[in-house]
Write a protein that binds this DNA or RNA. Structure first.
Lengths: 113, 113
DNA sequence: TATATATGCATAAGAAAATTATGTATATAT
DNA sequence: ATATATACATAATTTTCTTATGCATATATA
């Protein structure tokens, strides 16, 4: 995670889960490139943040891993488990809620009801 | 800061600055109540997060402080400095950018250009 | 009258999630 | 030959929060 904003703290898990929800399996480096592409370079996921996050999600049983060798280089493909798919929905709901809450705080026109 | 979500990390400074941009001076406890009201209880700022954050903003020269005694109880009123007003604009721009970026990541229809 | 709740501040210990710096290794372009 | 891209990993440190605790006064309630 690297950007000029501190707001992304806490968002990495949500991002990983969402990407894996759209593409059934991805490897670490691929995730960093996809995020860079989707955000036009605005958000660069650092390896020091990404790999520990992937390991944690795997340890929690939200991701399964599958090792492959491509062009003589190692790749670790990650995919959502059933629990991971549920957690993705939950995280996306949280994100939506967060955005609404922040809009209510900073722009009165978005008041909550 | 206390809620069902972990996404609020990094948002507290933005919230404080924005509230002080709308009301020229506020004290800590008042900020916690205002946030609770605006978010319908969704977001509860804890004292352990708020007071250190206020002290840090003061140390950075973004806030000025003014002590008052009301009903025999102490209040520390905080207000934006000139730098604080500039930083508020910057933080709100960051928040807007964060929301757009996250929407681009989680909902393809909000792609960045 | 005792006691809980609200108001108002503060800090310390610990956890979570990043940043920054390293390290290893292969493939490809200059 | 050398830099850049691909691909993984971890360790030290920093930031920001949670949880717990402490002090003190005012007010509502049992």
């Amino acid at each position: 995670m690297m950007s000029n904003s501190k707001l992304y703290k806490g968002s990495l898990t949500t991002i990983i889960l969402k990407l894996l929800n759209e593409k059934d399996k991805m490897y670490g480096y691929e995730i960093t490139q996809k995020v860079k592409e989707l955000t036009k370079g605005e958000l660069q996921i650092t390896e020091g943040a990404l790999y520990p996050a992937l390991h944690k999600l795997e340890a929690e049983g939200l991701l399964d891993v599958e090792v492959a060798k491509v062009d003589n280089r190692l790749r670790k493909y990650y995919m959502l488990t059933e629990d991971g798919a549920k957690e993705t929905v939950s995280k996306l709901t949280e994100l939506e809620s967060y955005i609404k809450t922040m809009q209510a705080l900073v722009s009165p026109k978005f008041s909550l009801e």
